[in-house]
Amino acid sequence: MSPRARATLQRCLRDPRVIGGGLLALLVAGLALFAPWLAPHDPQEQDLLSTLLPPMWAAGGEAAYPLGTDTLGRCILSRLLHGARIALYVGVVAATGAMLLGTVLALVAGYFGGWIDWAIGRLVDVWMAFPPVILALILLVGMGAGVNKVILAIVLIDWTRFCRVIRSEVLVVRRRDYVAAARLAGFTHVQTIVKEVLPAVTPLVITLFSLEMGIAVIVEAIMSFVGLSVEPDVAAWGVMIADARTTMNQAPWGVIAPVLAIFATVLAFNLLGDGLRRALDARLVTSRGEA
C-alpha cells in the first residue's frame, strides 16, 4: 500500500464521523440481519385486543410490546426491525446500481470528451430538469409499484448524482500528465481508464456511494409512505408512518419510532460519507441533495 493510501486510511479511521457513522451503520445492519431472531413478534401478527399500546416504559405499556403496538395491534419493535431489512436492501442495491451506471458514464464522458461527453451531458440536463421525487413517482406509475421497482427507479434517477460529480473529477485527472504518460507507454484507452483514472476517482466514488445509500433509504420511505413501494401490509418504515399518521393524536410513538429509525440510518450514512469526504479530501461532493 502506498504511504498516501496508508495515511488516508489512518485519517479515515481517526475521523470521529467515520467511526460514529460506521458503527451506527453496522448496528442498523446487524439489527436488520438478525431481525427474525431479535423481533419478539411476527411483524404481521395482529393482536386486536391490544391496539395502540404505548411503549413499555409509559403508563399502560406492556413488556410484550417494548415499543407499543399500532392500530391493528402489531408489534412496533418487530415491524421496525423488519423494516430495517427493506430499508438496507434498497439502500445497498439501489446505491450500487446508481454508482455503477453513473461512474461508467462519467468515466466515458470525462475521458473521451467530444460528442460522447456532449451527449451524456445533455442526458444529464434532461434528468436534472425533474425534481427527483417527481421522476420517481412517474416511473413508479409507469412500471407499477413494488420494492424492486423502487430500486430500479432510484438507479434510473440518481445515476446523475454520480455522473455529474465524478465526470468533473475525471476531467481534472484527465489533464494530469500521468494519464498522457500512460498512453505514451502504450496503454490502451481501457487500460488507461482502469489503471490510471479509476483509482484516482475511487475515493470520490466511495464517498458518494455512502451518501447515496442514505438518499435511497429516504426515497424508499417516501415511496412506501405513498403506497408505491411494498405491499401495504409489509412492514416498511414509510408504511408504518403512513399507518400511524391517522392516529398521531392518541399514539404519537407509532410515528416517532419509524421516524427515528430513518433518522438514525440516514445519519449513519451521512456521517460516514461526510467523514470520508473530509478524510479523502473529495472536495467536490456537497453532501446530499434532496431526494
Binding site: 417516501i222 408512518i241 410515528v255 421516524v259 430513518i262 440516514v266 453532501s287 446530499r288
Partner: peptide
C-alpha cells in the same frame, strides 16, 4: 447540520405537526 440533513422534508412535516400541532 449533519443531523438536520438526515431528516427529509416529509419527516420534518410530520415532526412539526407533532410538535406544534399536536403536542
Amino acid at each position: 447540520t449533519t443531523g438536520l440533513m438526515a431528516i427529509p422534508e416529509f419527516l420534518w412535516a410530520i415532526l412539526l405537526i407533532l410538535a406544534f400541532g399536536v403536542a
